[in-house]
Design a protein around this nucleic acid. Structure first.
Length: 637
RNA sequence: GCCGUAGUAGCGUAGUGGUAGCGCAAUCCCUUGGUAAGGGAUAGGUCGUGAGUUCGAUUCUCACCUACGGCACCA
């Protein structure tokens, strides 16, 4: 056996990982969880039959996390079947930060069940049930699980090729089909786990199948890691955009407009700051901006193919004395093609980059709605680039550059790219898809970006690039997109006169930088936890007085700041300075100017920046020039 | 859409088969205070909507709406 450091040890054939660990040292024997044999993971009790490179994995290794979570999933299943006889097991994988297990049971679990199950799990850990592995012919396993009444498990095993053997694991009497590996006993799982939530989940992830009961848990190597995780979750909850939206008076939702947002003055200030920023970038990048109708005849959506694909997600509008159906537009592309179609287009005019802050409505499934992140009424920073085949690469390249520059300005430096390819449900021939996917892949590489494939996730009319940004607490958000479309223009009768005098349909590139303004603002809120950079902050400066004697000077200061283009609020409330500092800090106002007699006398201000305890005394004019400079959007500096 | 949980004053929450409290915010008064909650008083609620059970329902039951946690979906 060759150890990772190159040292070789000799053992009889059939030695186990546990025995090897014991031979190396008692400390390792205790700490060992599993062993890798030529890269393959073995249980410590599984005999090794050949010479191999080995590595013993202990609790200290990063790999231990996934192993613990896998064992914890089994532990959960054991506890549930102990407590709720008749419950069938299905699958239970390790996932990011934890694990889950899907059960089939007539009575759904309730939140009150979780502590009971968790307590039973801890008991089973204490029992240190020994693990055993057996290899069975597939058909024997199918028959065995059928006999036990585990029909989901039997179905899973039956989908394995019949000539393959399967491994079964026992923990005490309880056993399951499993690839392994597992620890020697349930004691090695430890106690750093916690059940977190319950949920319905469809068998094999398909909504047509039966709904199972899923229990989620989190599991770590030690209590310290578990606590750190729980703290991380708590911190994420604190910056929830719905909570901050309420606290900062940004927006609200209500029953009369499910899935749509009432933007309050503060929120709409942020909204416009973002919209204006994007608009400036469009001007720079040679886009034209248009505005198209909200209601468009059903015929147009039939022609584009959307009616067939998304009809049940469209809002329809009808009037009594007119015998036709209008669709509240769920997207802007067919409308943009109508503008393209007005007048004859020459290849000399291409590319035409047609942008719109397009207000769209989609009847999203009720269960998918989420704050301002997933809504039924939203505005896309949409654009369609009508171009020739040759222009796909340069247009894609320059869009990628534009998008990365925007994300940087908005505070996101870590961006990943995914290439989503043809879905099952699609229009257009395979030859056209081959061409479109190839064009996009090449253009992305030409832009100097690495991408990962996202097979089958493209739009029904073409493949897409998905731009995923990572926020300040490490969560990923897909916002920007670029889609190559060889189908829509032709379907809607768009064409241009080429150099050879013939008519050709243009290629359409559908693209968005932030995607939906609503969703992106949600991301911004959570990314900054409401502490926006000055150019985005709804209220940039609060002017607060110490004594009533300073009220008239304060009003003067507010006027001066407003004249300088700053967004200011005046606080002459009859309250202590301490109170005011606290209020404006909690409101996340970036700058607080405190004014008392001193300031009024020498026409100065005392500036306290959010999150900074010490103050700075400045002449009024100096403060204005500092603050206005800081409030300039990043692209205008 | 599916599974589960919830809906009480502007916000956050307690509570009960006999029409509801608390904290913050609000209003008024006192305090004129120099960097994260000064003190006092007052006002504010048909307990999400509709129906049922009951002498009586905010409380129990059912339906619906909405939100939340997931699943599924996301042009």
């Amino acid at each position: 056996m060759t150890l990772p450091d190159g040292k070789a040890l000799t053992f009889p054939k059939g030695v186990t990982g546990g025995e090897i660990a014991a031979a190396i040292g008692p400390g390792l024997a205790k700490a060992a969880l599993i062993i890798t044999v030529d890269g393959q993971e073995y249980d410590l009790f599984r005999p090794i039959e050949q010479d191999a490179k080995i590595r013993i994995i202990t609790r200290k290794d990063q790999e231990a996390l996934e192993l613990i979570r896998h064992d914890a999933a089994h532990l959960l299943a054991m506890a549930v079947q102990d407590l709720y006889p008749g419950t069938q097991v299905t699958i239970g994988p390790a996932i990011e930060d934890g694990f889950y297990y899907d059960f089939a049971r007539d009575t759904p679990f309730t939140p009150e069940d979780l502590p009971k199950i968790e307590a039973r799990m801890h008991e089973i850990v204490k029992e240190a049930r020994p693990t055993r592995r057996e290899v069975w012919p597939r058909d024997k396993a199918v028959a065995h699980f059928l006999e036990m009444g585990e029909k989901y498990k039997a179905e899973l095993i039956a989908s394995i090729p019949s000539d393959e053997d399967v491994s079964l694991y026992w923990h005490g009497d309880w056993h399951d089909l499993c690839r392994g590996p597992h620890f020697r006993t349930t004691a090695e799982i430890g106690d750093a786990f916690k059940l977190t939530k319950i949920s319905g989940a469809y068998w094999r992830g398909d909504a047509k199948n039966a709904q199972l009961q899923r229990i989620y848990g989190t599991a770590w190597r030690d209590k310290k890691e578990l606590d750190a995780y729980l703290t991380r979750v708590e911190e994420a909850e604190k910056r929830d955009h719905r909570k901050i939206g309420k606290e900062m008076d940004l927006f609200h939702t209500q029953e009369v407009a499910t899935g749509q947002i009432f933007w309050h003055a503060n929120g709409y200030t942020l909204y416009r700051a973002l919209e204006n920023y994007i608009r400036r970038q469009l001007v720079r990048a040679d886009y034209i901006e248009v505005k198209t109708p909200q209601l468009l005849d059903r015929k147009l959506w039939e022609a584009s193919g959307h009616w067939d694909n998304y009809r049940e997600h469209m809002f329809l509008a009808e009037v009594e004395d007119e015998n036709r159906t209008l669709v509240v537009k769920p997207m802007n592309c067919p409308a943009h093609v109508q503008i393209f179609n007005e007048g004859l287009k020459s290849y000399r005019e291409l590319p035409i980059r047609m942008a719109e802050f397009g207000s769209c409505h989609r009847y999203e499934p009720s269960g998918s709605l989420h704050g301002i992140m997933r809504v039924r009424g939203f505005v896309q920073d949409d654009a369609h680039i009508f171009c020739t085949h040759e222009q796909i690469t340069p247009e894609t390249t320059s869009f990628c550059k534009l998008l990365l520059a925007c994300y940087k300005d908005l505070g996101f430096e870590d961006v990943r790219v995914k290439l989503a390819t043809r879905p099952d449900n699609r229009i257009g021939s395979d030859a056209v898809w081959d061409q479109a996917e190839k064009a996009l892949a090449e253009a992305t590489s030409a832009a100097g970006l690495d991408y990962v494939l996202n097979p089958g996730e493209g739009a029904f009319y073409g493949p897409k690039l998905e731009f995923v940004l990572r926020d300040s607490i490490g969560r990923d958000w897909q916002c920007g997109t670029l889609q190559v479309d060889f189908n829509t223009a032709e379907r809607l009768g768009a064409s241009y006169i080429a150099q050879d005098g013939g008519r050709h349909p243009p290629v359409m590139l559908h693209r968005a930088i932030v995607g939906s303004l609503e969703r992106f603002i949600g991301v911004l809120i959570e990314h900054y936890a409401g502490k926006f950079p000055l150019w985005l902050a709804p209220v940039q400066v609060a002017v607060a007085t110490v004594v009533a004697d300073a009220d008239s000077y304060a009003a003067e200061v507010v006027q001066a700041l407003k004249a300088a283009g700053l967004r200011v609020t005046l606080d002459t409330e009859n309250q202590t300075v301490n109170y005011k500092v606290r209020q404006h800090s909690l409101a996340k106002t970036p700058n607080l100017l405190v004014l008392g007699r001193r300031e009024a006398e020498n026409r100065s201000v005392t500036l306290r920046k959010l999150g900074v305890e010490k103050q700075e005394s400045l002449a009024l004019e100096a403060a204005i020039s500092i603050l206005t400079a800081e409030a300039v959007p990043p692209d205008l500096r």
